[in-house]
C-alpha cells in the first residue's frame, strides 16, 4: 500500500471518528430523554402483562413457557428496533426535508456512503444500549420468575450486534426515503405492524397453528431479532436455529443497508 493510500485511510478514519464524536456529544446532552423514551413503553407493558395480570388471576403461558420469559427477548428486540428508528429515521428525515444541517457532515473529506454508514453504526450503539436497559426491567418486574441464562455468549454478542445494525439500516432506509410529513404514516403502516408481527409476544414455533402467518412473517427482520435473543438468553423457550437466525439478520442488513445508502446518496448528490 502506498503512502498516499495510507494517509487517505488515516484521514477517512479521522473524519469518521469526528462524526461519531459529534453524535456522542448530542446523545450525552439528551441522555435523560433518551432513557425515558427507551424504557417507558416496555416498563408499562411489563407492569400490566406480567405484574398486574398474574395478580388479578389471569393465567398466562404461551407455547408451554411463562409469558414473562417469552417477553424478555421480545421486548429487547422492540427496544433495539425503536431506538434504531428514532436515532436515524426521524433526525435524517428532518435534516433532509427541512433543516439541511447534514450538509456540513456530507462535505467532510469522507466518501459520502460512509456518512450514512456512520449513522447506522452510531444508531447500533444506541440500540445495544437500549436492549441492555430493557433487560433488567424484563427480569425484575414480572411476578413469576423469568428463566434467563446465557446459553452462548458469542450468539448473544452476534445477535445484539447484527440486530442493532439492522435496526439502524432500517432507520436509514426510512429516513432517506420518506418525507418528514409522512413519517407518522410510515410508523403506522410499517413500524407498528412489523413490531406486532415480529414474534415479540410469542415464539415463532408457536405459530404452527396459524401456518400462513408463520410463513408470512419470515420476511420481517424483527422476527430474527426476537428469535436470536431467545436462542441466546432463554434457550428453554422454543426458537429457530442459530445459524438460520444469523444468516437472516445478515441478509436483512445487506438489503436494508444497500437501499438506505442508495437513498442517502440520491438525497445528497444530484
Amino acid at each position: 500500500m502506498s503512502n498516499l493510500q495510507t494517509a487517505r485511510r488515516g484521514s477517512y478514519a479521522g473524519a469518521f471518528a469526528g462524526l461519531m464524536l459529534r453524535d456522542l456529544r448530542v446523545l450525552r446532552r439528551e441522555l435523560g430523554p433518551f432513557i425515558v423514551r427507551i424504557i417507558m413503553q416496555p416498563l408499562l407493558f411489563l407492569f400490566v402483562f406480567t405484574y398486574v395480570l398474574p395478580h388479578i388471576g389471569q393465567a398466562n403461558t404461551i407455547g408451554g413457557a411463562d409469558f414473562a420469559t417469552v417477553l424478555l427477548p421480545g421486548l429487547m428486540a422492540v427496544a433495539i428496533m425503536f431506538s434504531g428508528i428514532s436515532a436515524v429515521a426521524l433526525p435524517l428525515s428532518q435534516e433532509f426535508g427541512i433543516t439541511r444541517e447534514i450538509d456540513d457532515r456530507v462535505m467532510s473529506p469522507l466518501p459520502v456512503p460512509f456518512v450514512a454508514i456512520e449513522k447506522v453504526c452510531f444508531s447500533a450503539l444506541q440500540s445495544t444500549l437500549a436492549a441492555l436497559l430493557v433487560m433488567p426491567l424484563a427480569i425484575y418486574i414480572p411476578t413469576n420468575p423469568v428463566h434467563v441464562h446465557v446459553a452462548s455468549w458469542p450468539m448473544l454478542a452476534a445477535t445484539l450486534l447484527l440486530s442493532s445494525l439492522v435496526a439502524g439500516a432500517l432507520g436509514l432506509t426510512i429516513g432517506a426515503n420518506v418525507k418528514p410529513q409522512q413519517i407518522g404514516l410510515v410508523f403506522s403502516i410499517v413500524v407498528v405492524p412489523i413490531t406486532f408481527l415480529g414474534c415479540v409476544y410469542y415464539p415463532w414455533a408457536a405459530l404452527t397453528r396459524v401456518r400462513w402467518l408463520q410463513l408470512a412473517v419470515l420476511v420481517n427482520p424483527i422476527v430474527y431479532m426476537s428469535e436470536g435473543l431467545r436462542a441466546a438468553l432463554t434457550p428453554n423457550v422454543p426458537h429457530m436455529y442459530s445459524g438460520v437466525i444469523l444468516l437472516a439478520l445478515l441478509i436483512s442488513l445487506l438489503v436494508l443497508g444497500w437501499i438506505g445508502i442508495r437513498g442517502f446518496l440520491r438525497r445528497v448528490i444530484s
Binding site: 484521514s11 473524519a15 446532552r29
Partner: peptide, 16 residues
C-alpha cells in the same frame, strides 16, 4: 444540536 463553538470544533474534527 450543537453550540456555535461546537459547530466550529466538530467541523475541525471532521477534517482530522
Amino acid at each position: 444540536s450543537l453550540t456555535i463553538f461546537e459547530n466550529l470544533y466538530f467541523h475541525c474534527r471532521y477534517f482530522g
